[in-house]
Design a protein around this nucleic acid. Structure first.
Lengths: 201, 201
DNA sequence: CTTTTTTTGTAACAATTGGTATATTAATTA
DNA sequence: TAATTAATATACCAATTGTTACAAAAAAAG
């Protein structure tokens, strides 16, 4: 009963909203929040400013929507990784997938959540906090998984899940910086193998 | 023969140039290159624009000078660290001093060289490259030290100095992100202890 | 058709961006 | 004291920032 073909009144939108959001995501991804100008956004999306504002609200709203799309799409692997059977496999999978993702040639290098507003003017303070929350929630996801592993005897009794999670988060964030600076997947994988030596096999 | 007290002609500068540069450094440190506006700079330095421009050139020149001051001052510990007697001690000292420095309450959190222009508009492309070069040179410093250690039998023969150096660089850069996001020195030291487990004692 | 509704294109908005021209002030030199 | 030199303060510059008014255009509904 084709619910999504329901006819809309008024002049039809000339662009695909989700496709445009994808392009906006890419711009924020390699320019950051402040580094991406409305001018560059409208040019790349192929629409003009009023269309952008009526479709997405304002710059901050657009960023939040692009961020949601990013979290649901490109980096959804983080949520899968905790389903690996052992803590060791979780760590291994997380770091290897990160190394691959952060250097993927088909999209901007590095992680949008890590870099889109690290240091910026105060007009980006709110966005900065949003990104910090995202990073913390991913880190907590890992910490909870490791605590479960510890209680199940899959990690040494004296292991601290929270610290192990932060170790992985730090590696991920550092790799993101490296990827943006030209490091290749191979470069990062070598480091991942070193980093995993701290982990009980 | 007081060479530096030589009298200058013309109206004397009302502000201390080096002190002003220190304040500029702090602003770039937590705002980044693009995030720091000329208005904020002149206000904080307590001088007006023509004075700033005549003393430091332009924004980019001012940033470069602030960056030099940063490299010579706050992060000079990196250059000392390679003088530790063993590779293990180099790694240990580097990571512990980084954890402390990145969270020092007396100055901005995180590392200016890591974060001042990670993702930004194209007007910051040149600065971005300069920072990448700085990061690479620090990493190379460590790599050369570790290669020396390997040849001296202080590291396993099959160790790859370059990879070990990148491991430390990644940890440092990740810790910088964490410090900016609220991690404490204690948080980071715990991770450092985990990270050092990969290292032969 | 005409009306209604919504998007489009153009053109503007005030505020801020980095950067300067100009004139005044304050010191040294002659 | 007069001339020279350099830093100051004020005010401005064009360009860009994010955002919006307004009118024309394109669809559906009556």
């Amino acid at each position: 009963m084709e619910a999504d073909v329901k006819k809309m009144r008024g002049r039809p939108r000339i662009f695909d909203q989700d496709e445009a959001l994808g392009k906006a995501m890419q711009i924020f991804w390699n320019r950051g929040y402040e580094g991406a100008s409305i001018a560059e956004l409208t040019e790349t999306l192929g629409i003009n400013k009023p269309s952008l504002y009526s479709a997405f609200g304002n710059k901050e709203e657009l960023f939040k929507k692009a961020l949601s799309k990013y979290a649901a799409g490109p980096v959804s692997f983080v949520r899968d990784v905790v389903n690996e059977p052992t803590a060791r496999k979780v760590a291994e999978s997380f770091l290897l997938k990160a190394a691959e993702f952060l250097t993927e040639p088909s999209h901007p290098k590095g992680c949008m959540i890590v870099q889109a507003a690290l240091s910026s003017g105060e007009s980006a303070d709110l966005v900065k906090d949003i990104l910090i929350n995202y990073r913390n929630s991913y880190e907590n996801l890992l910490a909870e998984r490791f605590e479960k592993a510890r209680l199940a005897g899959d990690l040494p009794e004296n292991a601290v899940a929270k610290d192990l999670a932060k170790y992985l988060a730090i590696l991920h964030q550092g790799m993101s910086v490296q990827a943006t600076s030209g490091a290749t997947k191979e470069d990062l994988v070598k480091v991942v193998n070193i980093a995993l030596n701290v982990w009980p096999k």
